[in-house]
Nucleic acid binder design. Structure first.
Length: 171
DNA sequence: TTAGTGATATCC
DNA sequence: GATATCACTAAA
């Protein structure tokens, strides 16, 4: 049974959603009608304004505003001037948390995945539960998981930097 | 190890 | 307006 994940799936703490997103299949309908699918094999959770690695820890700004929105919202942002990174918002409205989609089974690396799926800022502010051209499916796959610390956040301080909030399929 | 790249935030 | 920063990748 394959079903599109609904708002209910995302409407939980990011620490619950992030591990469950591993093994799910992200789907993208291209302008020409073709559909790309790729299984997610790595995610990271970013949890609240206290989490110094979370963008919202620096305050509520036009960019981080999306983190405060309802669960399922797509948060896309440009990193290092050339890479689009894609997140899904989780948890309660006004609670700034989300999950970074870090890697697919073929395209490892958050920017490679968005490049393959042709994701750019036009998707920013959309919703995985309702967007016509991008969604996530559950096909029943339940990979074995392992956890690790998040990467690329040396600025976040020893405490937050060492949180084991990265989930990786260990198959 | 390092260059490349541009939006964003934070200073003038 | 100017500058510093950055959840990365590819090439070497």
């Amino acid at each position: 049974m394959i079903e599109r994940l609904t708002e209910e799936f995302y409407h939980r703490d990011c620490l619950e959603v992030a591990p469950e997103l591993v093994g799910k299949v992200i789907c993208r309908r291209l302008p020409d009608g073709g559909i790309l699918r790729e299984r997610i094999v790595e995610t990271e959770a970013y949890r609240g304004s206290e989490d110094l690695a979370c963008h919202a820890s620096k305050g509520r700004t036009p960019r981080t505003e999306l983190l405060y929105r309802e669960s399922g919202v797509i948060y896309v942002y440009l990193c290092y001037g050339m890479h689009w990174l894609m997140n899904v918002i989780t948890g309660e409205r006004e609670d700034p948390q989300g999950v970074l989609i870090r890697a697919g089974i073929v395209h490892n690396g958050p920017a490679k995945l968005t490049k393959y799926l042709q994701i750019d800022k036009s998707f920013n502010g959309g919703n995985f539960a309702s967007h016509p051209d991008i969604w996530i499916e559950d096909d029943g796959c339940r990979p074995k998981l392992r956890t690790d610390v998040r990467v690329g956040i040396d600025y976040a301080g020893d405490y937050w930097k060492n949180m084991p909030w990265r989930w990786i399929a260990d198959d």
